[in-house]
Design a protein around this nucleic acid. Structure first.
Lengths: 135, 135
DNA sequence: TTGCTCCTCACGTCACGTGAGGTGGC
DNA sequence: TTGCTCCTCACGTCACGTGAGGTGGC
C-alpha cells in the first residue's frame, strides 16, 4: 500500500495530454467533487485509468447543456431512473438550442452572400432580424 | 428641443416588453457602447424606435458566437467589407458547434432509450464516450 | 398615497484562465 | 543544474443577475 499511487495510475500530465483539459480544469472538477485523485507523486496528482472515461462523460453532459453541479448530481443518481426524466427535459432544450443556432447560421450565411452594400438595407436580412423580436 | 426625449421615443419598459430583455441587460449593453438612450424622462431611459432592431442584430450575432466586444467592433465596421472575413470564420465555428451539439443530442437520446440498467454497461454508449477523447 | 418599475452602485455567478511565488521529478 | 510542469492561493473574465437603498411617473 503506497500512498503515492499504484502502477496503474496516470500522472496529471498524461491526463492532460489524453484529454486536452488543463490542470486548472481538473482542479476545478476536483473542488466540485466530480473527480478525485488516487494520491500524489511528490506534489503531482495521480488518477485511476478510468479518469479519462469519467472526463468524457462530463464533456458529453456539458455539451448537452448540464451545469457542472447538475452533472455531479447525475453521477450520484446514475443507478436511479430519475435521471432519465432530467435528460428528457435537457433533450428538448438541446433541440431548441440547435434550431436557434441553425437560424443564426443561416442569417450569417445570407449576410455573407448578400450583395447589398449595407446589410441593413437587404430586405431578406431585415425580415430575419424582425422575426427575432416580433411586434 | 427637449432633453427629456421626443414623441417617437420608447420608454425602457416598452423595450423590455418588446424584447424580453431585462433593464440590467440594457444597462450592460450601454456600458459597452452597443446602444445609447436618447435621453430620460425622470430617471427612466428613453430609446429611439430602431432600438429593437439594433437589439435583434445583437441577439443574432450573439447566437452566432460573437462576444459583445466583437459585436461592438462589427457594428462600427458595418460599412467595411472586412466583417465578411470575420463572419466566414464564425460560420465555420458555428458549424462545428452545431455538429458537436448534434452528437451530444444523439448521445443523450440513446441513453434515454437504452434498456441497460447502468448506461456505462451499454456498449453503444461506451463507444460514443470513448470517441470523445480517443486513445 | 400606494405600487410599480425604474435608478445607481457593488457584489455574485458560472466555468474556468491567469498570474505570483514556490516545489518536485527527470 | 536547468527546464518543465506541477502546486496553492487569489483574483480576473464574460454576460449578465441580484440585492440594497433610493427616486419618479401613473
Amino acid at each position: 500500500m503506497r500512498s503515492s499511487g499504484t502502477v496503474e495510475d496516470m500522472d496529471i500530465g498524461v491526463v492532460r495530454e489524453n484529454t486536452g483539459l488543463s490542470a486548472a480544469t481538473l482542479h476545478h472538477y476536483e473542488q466540485l467533487g466530480l473527480i478525485a485523485s488516487t494520491g500524489r507523486v511528490g506534489l503531482r496528482r495521480q488518477y485511476n485509468d478510468d479518469i479519462v472515461e469519467t472526463l468524457a462523460v462530463i464533456a458529453l453532459c456539458q455539451r448537452s447543456g448540464f451545469t457542472l453541479e447538475e452533472i455531479g448530481e447525475l453521477m450520484v443518481r446514475r443507478h436511479n431512473a430519475a435521471w432519465k426524466t432530467i435528460a428528457r427535459a435537457k433533450l428538448e432544450s438541446l433541440d431548441r438550442r440547435i434550431a436557434s443556432l441553425q437560424e443564426a447560421r443561416d442569417g450569417i450565411q445570407h449576410a455573407i452572400n448578400c450583395a447589398s452594400p449595407d446589410i441593413m438595407r437587404c430586405e431578406h436580412f431585415r425580415h430575419r432580424i424582425e422575426a427575432i423580436y416580433p411586434i
